[in-house]
Design a protein around this nucleic acid. Structure first.
Lengths: 215, 215
DNA sequence: TAAGACTTATATGTATACATATAGGTAATT
DNA sequence: AATTACCTATATGTATACATATAAGTCTTA
């Protein structure tokens, strides 16, 4: 990872993820080259790579822009992500080891703690840890890759704070039920619960999209 | 698509898909540049892109090679592909339009014809058309993208002819049941049938891998 | 003022020139 | 013969120089 191009990819990806670069923003090759004090070559490489991965799009003769997803594209994305997260739960339940079980329980407890303290930052982190503990337990690294790829596309649209009142509490309760199903090796149930859980998030999409359009 | 780099990507992708380039084969930048009579720049871009997409891998200071998947990686791949193909069937059953229904039936008939004529080439084509008709009916373009991405990785390992006796017939019968479930709007059933169908293919993996190792 | 020709800045793609690190081979030394 | 020092070809990454097409602005002319 000594390559400038790789650092650029990382940096840009983070800026997109964090919302510093927002959907629709332009990325000018020359400007980036100057900003990072490198030549166009590694910049081009980074941009190409991000275009390949779908995070950027190029409008012919215009330049590269942070990709703007349509409502339909976002919904499709969510639908696939929900399916794969559900699959991860099913596999986790089927293949659970003792170690996996305790990671899941630990992450679950972190979520509860964060909710009790009403610490949204901690919750975000714990939430991620919860999902990751399940991914690990599923024992399919390609599945994890695919999920992460999809998450990378969804994240820019999550940058805005849309924590509805009481949603954190609800979300944690759903997590608890999912965790329970996995720990009891009820794969099909865990699958369904996770899919529903994800889809509840997805239902907030219209609100999110509206907020984006009007900014 | 006027770019040399894009043509290179296409060409190399096809050569990998078709088996002209086999897992483990090296791709030398200089050699490719000479072969296509272009400079290293577009070659590098193409190689980078294929590495990003996972079709190639680079061994540090060695060069780029057609990626070799381990047995575990292939199994993981198949597992995810089976899930998504199943999902496509479920969605297709739920969202089926009259047009979708007739495309599926048409493709199904093409499969039957190919089997009756024992025409393996025609079958391969019809089989693809069958899957694609379902993908279209699922109405989720991201899902299709993901499936195609996975297929691109599985294909190099399908290049070898491994049509077991009678498998074509069996496969078509499975297709018929899947099609029937979709046309009757039985989403869950279609999902399960397709997943099973895919997994039967997956079970041939050990044989395929053995064949690869020993060549 | 409006339509069309013209110009320019920019995006884009490619080629070439360097610079550096290292894998793998060669030579030297024991 | 084996180990080590050394050397060289190659991979790799970056910079720079061109070349071309076109979007967008400017100017001309009616």
């Amino acid at each position: 990872m000594a390559r400038v191009a790789d650092q650029l990819i990382e940096t840009l990806r983070n800026e997109i993820r964090s919302g510093a670069l927002r959907p629709g923003d332009q990325l000018e090759e020359a400007a980036l080259a100057e900003r990072f004090d490198v030549s166009r070559t590694p910049v081009r490489e980074a941009v190409r790579s991000l275009v390949d991965s779908g995070l950027l799009e190029t409008r012919p003769r215009k330049g590269a822009f942070v990709r703007v997803l349509t409502a339909k594209e976002l919904i499709d994305l969510f639908e696939v992500a929900a399916e794969l997260e559900g699959m991860a739960c099913r596999l986790a339940a089927e293949r659970l080891t003792g170690e996996d079980a305790s990671s899941i329980e630990t992450a679950m407890q972190l979520c509860r703690d964060a909710v009790n303290r009403d610490d949204k930052t901690a919750y975000a982190k714990a939430n991620l840890a919860f999902h990751e503990s399940i991914h690990l337990a599923a024992g399919n690294s390609r599945l994890v890759e695919q999920i992460e790829q999809l998450a990378g596309h969804i994240n820019p649209y999550r940058a805005m704070p849309f924590q509805m009142r009481g949603r954190l509490q609800k979300s944690t309760e759903e997590h608890a039920r999912i965790a329970e199903a996995i720990l009891e090796n009820k794969g099909a149930e865990a699958d369904d619960l996770m899919r529903d859980h994800m889809m509840l998030q997805g239902q907030r999409l219209p609100i999110i999209l509206e907020a984006i359009e009007s900014r």
